[in-house]
Structure formats: C-alpha cells, structure tokens
C-alpha cells in the first residue's frame, strides 16, 4: 500500500506504507485517519529537500528491527549500529544534518534521530563552549556569578 506525504513547501511524495511508518507520527496518523487516505499527509515542519532525504533513509532501513526507546530496565543497551551506508548518509554539510535532525524529531523517525544526534555529539565533543555558542548562535546568558558556580560544580572530586 502507498501513502502520500506533503512537505511544508507543497511537494508531494508517494512511498510504501511500511517505509512511511518508520515515522511514529505518520504511523499514528494512519491509524487515526484510516478512512481518509485520499489526501496527502501534511508535514508542516519539513521541507521538500529534507523530506526526500528522510525518505531515502527510511527506504534503506525499512526492514530494520524497531528501536525501543524504553531504557528503563536495561542500561547495558548497545549504541545503535552504524553501517557504511549510514556513514555515507551523514556526509553532508552541517546545516543539512541539523535540518535532518529537526525533521527526524518532528516526524519521530527514531533511528534517524539517533544517527543525527550522534553526529551532533561528535561535533560538540571537539569544541569549547565559545565555539559551540558561535556554531549554533547561542547567547551566553550566564551572569559572572553563575559562571563561577558552574566552575565550582565541576569540582566533582572535592568534599
């Protein structure tokens, strides 16, 4: 069965239902709107470029076992496997990857969200707080007193 998806800029994509269902949001929508499948499903936060890329990802991973986000009882959870295809997939510019993280988050495509977050973590790891602020255009909203307090919080080892 096919499902049609509409990006925020009005482009329509037709994909297999099982591919679209990698998105938790779409899966839930399909359950609710079973009767009304003639209209494309609107994705208001996702542009055509990103949606095409998300669909490419879902096509490749259509048969993967679903990820359980429940980490309540097993902390020995292994990190999600990243194969060569995934590595190739993440060779895009940072801006694109950040847009993809947002798209994966709003569509709730869990494996893609994890892949993107891992990518973001690898970037953040190598940076100083100032560099992180510059990259993401974040304001330093701490007062000097608060900055001191954090320095102090970092003293894990002292009684």
């Amino acid at each position: 069965m096919k499902v049609t998806l509409e990006s925020s800029d009005g482009q329509v994509f037709t994909v297999d239902k099982e591919v679209a269902e990698l998105s938790v949001i779409i899966k839930e929508m399909l359950v609710i709107e079973q009767a009304n499948q003639d209209h494309p499903i609107p994705l208001l936060n996702v542009g055509a470029v990103e949606l095409a890329k998300v669909i490419e990802y879902c096509e490749h991973h259509r048969n993967d076992p679903t990820i359980d986000d429940d980490e309540d009882y097993d902390s020995r959870k292994k990190p999600i496997e990243m194969d060569d295809w995934d590595k190739q997939f993440t060779i895009v510019n940072k801006e694109m990857m950040f847009e993809l993280i947002l798209a994966a988050n709003s569509m709730q495509v869990k494996p893609l969200l994890h892949l993107g977050c891992r990518y973001a973590a690898d970037i953040v790891k190598r940076m100083s707080p100032t560099e992180i602020r510059d990259l993401f255009q974040i304001d330093d909203d701490f007062t000097p007193e608060e900055q001191d307090k954090i320095e102090w919080e970092k003293q894990w080892t002292k009684l």
Partner: peptide, 17 residues
Amino acid sequence: HPHPLSIPEILDHVAKY
C-alpha cells in the same frame, strides 16, 4: 529553523553520546 540543540529532547539524545 531554530538550531536542533535548542530543543531539550534533542539535547538529551545528544548527551547519550
């Protein structure tokens, strides 16, 4: 769009790595 790390849930995921 806002940057992804402005969304707390995303930042939580990033922190796992």
